[in-house]
Write a protein that binds this DNA or RNA. Structure first.
Length: 324
DNA sequence: CCATTTGTTGGTACGATTTG
DNA sequence: CAAATCGTACCAACAAATGG
């Protein structure tokens, strides 16, 4: 029952290990010898159009102070509530189903106690009528583990009448693009014309590639796109992720125009060599355990117009062998 | 004191392909 | 042939930042 792919994977892992060792050696050299660094940098520049910056950040020290500054308990708004709760009890992240149910029950109670019709409640939540802003304060009194802001946003998301989920069709997509041309990134405004929430609309617009949606190349990657991605993360993190002689390797393997070679990760779908290409690319990058910075996907995507930030993110995760 | 937009991350849907 | 797997396009939901 030993799969062929497993064997391949073992082989590939070993291969990576030796590459890693090789690379570590080079990396060590560069750390000690700044002069070879610049030589390599110059060579790199001559050999390839791709920009390489050997900033060579030595292994990142974590800033101890950055942790303290994070823990300010903020219940947002309403100062008087801040005194009623224990900051350490404030939760973060996703609401559990129980939490959501609890909050919705409280909303319902509020509705009954204040003798509000469904329509009235809805109008308050969608901000169509003013004068009942205390609602958020009242409700959050019963939710000691969440900030007012957090509860406020949850309720407005959940009870938005436009919060219908599901896929977009082509017509909607075109409509969306038209509205963005007309109104800009005013999601609330656009939401008035489309039966979707602002969040929903914005997410969709991001997903199709924002203002670069016309350039987006689905599915296929060029080696150039790949390298730009890696280089950006290199610049950002300071870790030189590519082997210094990566372009020689690629040139040897794919010829002078290696940058234009396309591949798709879904190697079974098309060309047989797609997987090989990706494996080759994997072998010329070395990724540290922890890159230590949050990657600015938006920035990188604005450089690589043919890929969305989501495309880039997923490629990076794929490269790291994570999830999905 | 809110209302809206932006940054970021977690997760699912679904067709193509492989495997048992 | 049915079930499992894979790649990835796509959907959703939170906190942080910004605006008025």
């Amino acid at each position: 029952m030993m799969h062929k792919s497993q064997k391949q994977y073992e082989k590939f892992k070993n291969h990576l290990k030796t590459q890693e060792q090789e690379y570590n050696d080079i990396f060590q050299q560069q750390k000690i010898e700044p002069q070879t660094q610049t030589v390599i940098e110059k060579q790199q520049k001559r050999r390839s159009k791709i920009r390489i910056i050997f900033t060579n950040k030595t292994i990142q020290q974590q800033y101890p102070e950055s942790q303290e500054s994070k823990s300010v308990a903020k219940r947002s708004w309403h100062k008087e509530l801040d005194n009623l709760i224990n900051p350490s009890e404030i939760k973060d992240g996703k609401f559990s189903n129980e939490e959501k149910q609890q909050i919705m029950d409280i909303v319902h109670n509020y509705q009954i106690q204040n003798n509000l019709s469904d329509q009235q409640l809805k109008d308050y939540i969608e901000l169509k009528t003013l004068g009942h802003s205390k609602i958020w304060l009242e409700i959050t009194k019963y939710i000691p583990t969440r900030t007012v802001d957090s509860v406020y946003k949850l309720i407005r998301r959940k009870m938005d009448s436009k919060n219908r989920q599901g896929y977009w069709n082509k017509e909607e997509e075109i409509e969306l693009i038209r509205y963005v041309q007309q109104y800009g990134r005013k999601w609330r405004e656009i939401s008035k014309h489309i039966n979707r929430t602002p969040d929903n609309i914005r997410n969709k617009y991001n997903q199709i590639g924002e203002h670069n949606h016309l350039f987006r190349n689905k599915s296929f990657w060029t080696i150039q796109e790949f390298l730009i991605l890696i280089n950006n993360i290199h610049s950002l993190s300071g870790y030189p992720l590519l082997l210094p002689n990566y372009d020689q390797i690629l040139k040897k393997r794919f010829g002078d125009n290696f940058e234009q070679i396309t591949f798709r990760l879904n190697y079974r779908k098309m060309k047989v060599e797609d997987k090989d290409i990706f494996d080759q690319l994997k072998s010329i990058v070395k990724i540290p355990q922890n890159i230590g910075v949050t990657i600015k996907w938006t920035e990188i995507a604005s450089e690589i117009k043919t890929k969305t930030k989501d495309d880039l993110r997923q490629m990076w995760y794929k490269l790291n062998g994570n999830k999905f």
